[in-house]
Design a protein around this nucleic acid. Structure first.
Lengths: 352, 352
DNA sequence: ACGGGGACTGTAAACGTTTACAGTCGTGAA
DNA sequence: TTCACGACTGTAAACGTTTACAGTCCCCGT
């Protein structure tokens, strides 16, 4: 159906090798011949078949992105960063999501096998075992926000620990002494690290370990709401709440509003993630910013390096910094607040 | 490097043809042989090479998704729907975005060429010309929310017209007579259709065409804010505002709040898209819901049909319905309001 | 006993590239 | 004049599958 190299070669009265050379910018083909091939190719609208090429070169020019989920802006931002970078390097992006079960992950890894030159894997429920067992030893991989220790893989993650630590220190600096944390999903890596940051900041401040006020949550808005009910029952009542993510902070905010507790007047409230909604609630939410799309950019950049400089590449574990976004809900004086930080675009159904 | 069919064949003492047959569930291979091949394959961790297979079958088992952008939840939802559907059918998803310029689109189409069995194209700035010129005539395509008329392509779009029409009718039903619209980007397809719906509803209600109150906007929050300044200057002042999307509605809401105009008391306000933030603003935003992920699902389903039943497939232009989400900002009595409609998951940086 | 047919398996030719290797031809140096 | 060499081009063998076609057995009906 489609026109092949053979046809172009025939019409340009050269061999397929020469056509191939023309299309690969090989410099050992005569100016005149090159011209002739180009014209014929253009005439026939010839486009090299990537599959044939892949078979021959053993490259696919594609990289895979394995995600646990596709809900919410977090993943969409990761994808955005990844796509952007991949395109710059003239690669392609193969996406596969919804891999939470071990079996699903294994299946996905199989499917990717042979289709991509490298893989960015983001999935919380994975162990080095499973990875090694299902990946060809030679396939470059970058782990994104995965709780895999050691240096067997390149990895890239968010500095949850420092983010949480910094945020709690901020609250402490403003005189808060009884600071509660609403925890995230128990076995979640991010949740664990954020909790660790909280504990470190508190205990370092000389507050007794038994005064850590830890309320459980599961990253959902509802759990934030519930947690506040618990917290308000405490006595003495905490003067600040650190929610392990913004969703819970927003749930908490609703609960506090209903309970007619002033924020930040009576209780300061802060979150983590810097999701856009944080700008719209009243009071606007102080939080920890994570440059998510950059996470995608960095991961892909690193991966492509591994793919292309296979021999000189050495594995690293990178931790991306976070920044504090000071808004109203922590009760800081105005001059300490961050600028309104608009995210790239609008969430609109209009594909403009 | 990787183990090939040949090796498996050798060790199982059969021909490659037989191995191939085993892996393709062909029923004409003896039970015993099948077993033997399976064991050897498992032992060697053999996985068929998709590139070799593609070259031979002329299928890639992948479909492409061409997007203009990756900002915001809209696209992430489309991707989610598409990915989900694609996986169900054991296909793969190749994503490429940021195609706004004509040249970028052409480049992207080229790149996809030969890598995918079908293409879902979503891009507002494209004409049938460009498409035909850059696509192999045989490649199945589904257009998503594209302003391409005629029946040369399968297409799928949102019923912007009816959504807007219905929403304005809703306002009219509640007695509003002076209803302003904040328009979207001038040449944007969605914007045009929504405007058309507005006009139809208004004029049908017997209101003079010269009483159409049309303020321009560009789908951004800022433009919504600006538009309100204009609207408040009007006399007599409109009693309701229909913003062409939720972002502008939210911008408008801020402006109204600052101008100390009660919503919905003095002015009713409604939007379009049903973005999650609409649930968090005060008053909560009445809007038009668009089931975005379903858009992805439908498009891919249709595309796969075209791919697989190439001969029996006939082209259709599908328009997906929208629904009204009645919340507080339009001033309806409580009992008319829609249930809180939670979207699938949380926007959290925690990959849980 | 023979022919026909079913059940299984092998042979080898695609599929569309790339690339090592082997020419061919002209040119400048010896 | 000859030779070596550079510049260009062609030949053909991969790359890893699928699949049409051609066997080879064995069994069964006649």
């Amino acid at each position: 159906m489609a026109v092949t190299m053979k046809e172009v070669a025939r019409r340009a009265r050269v061999s397929t090798a020469t056509v191939s050379r023309v299309f690969n910018d090989s410099n050992l083909v005569g100016e005149e011949t090159r011209e002739r091939v180009w014209t014929v190719a253009k005439e026939l609208r010839y486009v090299p078949n990537p599959v044939g090429r892949s078979l021959s070169t053993r490259r696919t020019d594609a990289i895979g992105l394995l995600l646990p989920d596709l809900y919410g802006e977090f993943f969409s931002e990761v994808i955005r960063g990844a796509d952007q970078t991949v395109q710059q390097h003239r690669y392609h992006l193969l996406i596969s999501s919804s891999h939470n079960e071990r079996s699903e992950i294994e299946a996905a890894l199989q499917m990717m096998h042979g289709r991509v030159d490298g893989l960015v894997i983001m999935t919380p429920h994975i162990d080095a075992q499973t990875l090694h067992a299902n990946l060809p030893k030679s396939l470059p991989v970058v782990l994104l926000n995965c709780p895999v220790a050691g240096n067997a893989f390149d990895s890239m993650s968010i500095d949850n620990y420092s983010g949480a630590y910094g945020m709690v220190r901020h609250l402490l600096a403003h005189g808060h002494r009884r600071i509660a944390i609403i925890k995230g999903i128990e076995r979640n890596y991010d949740a664990i690290e954020r909790l660790r940051g909280y504990r470190a900041a508190i205990t370092e401040a000389g507050i007794q370990a038994e005064d850590l006020i830890e309320v459980s949550g599961d990253f959902s808005e509802a759990s934030g709401y519930k947690a506040v009910e618990t917290i308000l029952g405490l006595s003495p009542r905490p003067s600040a709440i650190f929610a392990s993510n913004d969703s819970m902070a927003i749930g908490a905010l609703s609960a506090l509003k209903i309970a007619k507790v002033q924020v930040p007047g009576e209780i300061a409230l802060v979150g983590f993630d810097n999701i856009p909604v944080g700008n719209y609630v009243k009071p606007t939410l102080t939080t920890v910013n994570v440059d998510i799309s950059n996470l995608g950019v960095q991961a892909v950049t690193r991966l492509l390096h591994a793919v292309r400089e296979k021999n000189s590449h050495t594995k690293h574990q990178v931790i991306l910094p976070t920044t504090l976004i000071i808004r109203e809900s922590c009760g800081c004086p105005v001059e300490e607040r961050s600028q309104y930080s608009a995210k790239g675009g609008d969430a609109t159904a209009s594909n403009n």
